[in-house]
């Protein structure tokens, strides 16, 4: 005979219901899409460092509109081409001396500058303070890049959404248009547009925007083609939503990660184009300065006054590197499935 299991009587008493209310509860907080991306981004140390560097540059560049060490356009021929001088530090390179014909000369003394005159990054050939000019130039470079990217975004997203949503011959036609634009080198388009719009900040911004939206448009179109087959879009259509409303309420939120990632890659390329054009001499014109024009000015004297080229070059390179690393980080954060 099998052993009889003796169960105590209280085993059959019902449990208190309120004790198990938590069993279905999700302990972790419910993260939105943005919070989730931010959580992943925070784990990427280099991206966070890049972000901080970018924030610092933006604050310095735009803050210099209010607090600038000197007026970036104030010409002071007496103090032309002075090397960097930091108060109280006596290391060659930042003590106001430079090599002239093989000997080290105190340029500040030679220019008759008093003991209280310091230019942290030196002055240019017109005696303008390099630090102020670099801040000013960075501000213009960043402004051009950000505005150009915003316009690029507007054109690219609208074009891509429309093309993908409409489909059929409209899509086909719009894709041919993109293909044709893409088979002309971007720089040639930019140059032609600048020639027509007359060189200046406005035209350079528009030229960069008009020639770089194609990548965005293609990405958005490809994704839209996929999204419009989704059930929720069908549901919205069935309920009689207008196309415009579907685009804004259903498609755009789902496209946001692509848009954010692509934007972050567009900004550095816009910075590059602006610097490139200004360097060649068809971009920002005097008295305005951008990193490109500063590089161009610095290059003329590079052999003897290398600091005039070094600092703008360093600033431009650091901004580009930071943007690229940050963009890589954002891509991994927003789209963890893509390989990278």
């Amino acid at each position: 005979m099998a052993d009889e299991v003796k169960l105590p009587a209280d085993s059959f008493e019902p449990l208190d219901k309120s004790k198990h209310l938590d069993s279905e509860k999700i302990a972790a907080p419910n993260l939105t899409f943005m919070q989730d991306a931010w959580r992943r981004l925070k784990m990427n140390k280099s991206a966070i460092i890049a972000m901080i560097i970018l924030v610092v540059f933006f604050v310095l560049a735009f803050g210099s509109a209010f607090f600038s060490p000197h007026n970036p356009n104030a010409v002071n021929p007496q103090f032309a081409n002075l090397p960097p001088k930091w108060p109280g530090i006596n290391i060659n390179g930042v003590n106001g001396t430079l090599m002239q014909a093989g000997t080290r000369v105190n340029a500040y003394q030679a220019a008759g500058a008093g003991a209280g005159v310091h230019y942290l990054l030196g002055t240019d050939y017109l005696g303008r303070d390099m630090l102020s000019r670099i801040l000013f130039g960075t501000r213009i470079s960043l402004t051009v890049a950000v505005v150009a990217t915003a316009v690029d975004l507007l054109i690219g997203v609208t074009f891509g959404l429309f093309s993908g949503w409409k489909g059929g011959w409209i899509d086909n036609f719009m894709q041919r248009v993109i293909e044709i634009i893409m088979s002309i080198p971007t720089l040639v388009v930019v140059v032609l547009l600048i020639l027509i719009l007359k060189p200046g900040m406005m035209s350079i911004t528009l030229a960069i925007a008009f020639s770089s939206w194609t990548t965005m448009a293609r990405l958005i179109r490809a994704q839209t083609l996929e999204l419009k087959e989704q059930e929720y879009v069908l549901a919205a259509k069935t309920l009689g939503e207008s196309s415009l409303k579907i685009a804004f309420k259903h498609l755009l939120p789902n496209l946001s990660s692509i848009i954010i990632i692509q934007t972050m890659f567009t900004i550095p390329s816009a910075i590059f184009f602006e610097a490139f054009l200004s360097f060649v001499g068809i971009g920002i014109s005097a008295p305005q300065a951008s990193l490109g024009t500063l590089l161009n000015d610095g290059q003329k004297n590079f052999q003897f006054l290398p600091y005039q080229m070094w600092y703008p070059a360093i600033v431009l390179s650091v901004i580009m590197i930071a943007f690229n690393i940050f963009a890589d980080g954002l891509r991994d954060a927003f789209d963890p499935q893509t390989k990278g």
């Binding site: 290059q299 070059a313 390179s317 690229n324």
Partner: peptide, 22 residues
């Protein structure tokens, strides 16, 4: 590769000119 993508060719060109040439 991040450096190669980020540093503009004209900056690199001047650096090469300065160090390897001059």
């Amino acid at each position: 590769s991040i450096l190669g993508i980020s540093i503009p060719s004209f900056v690199l060109a001047v650096l090469l000119q300065y160090f390897l040439g001059l």
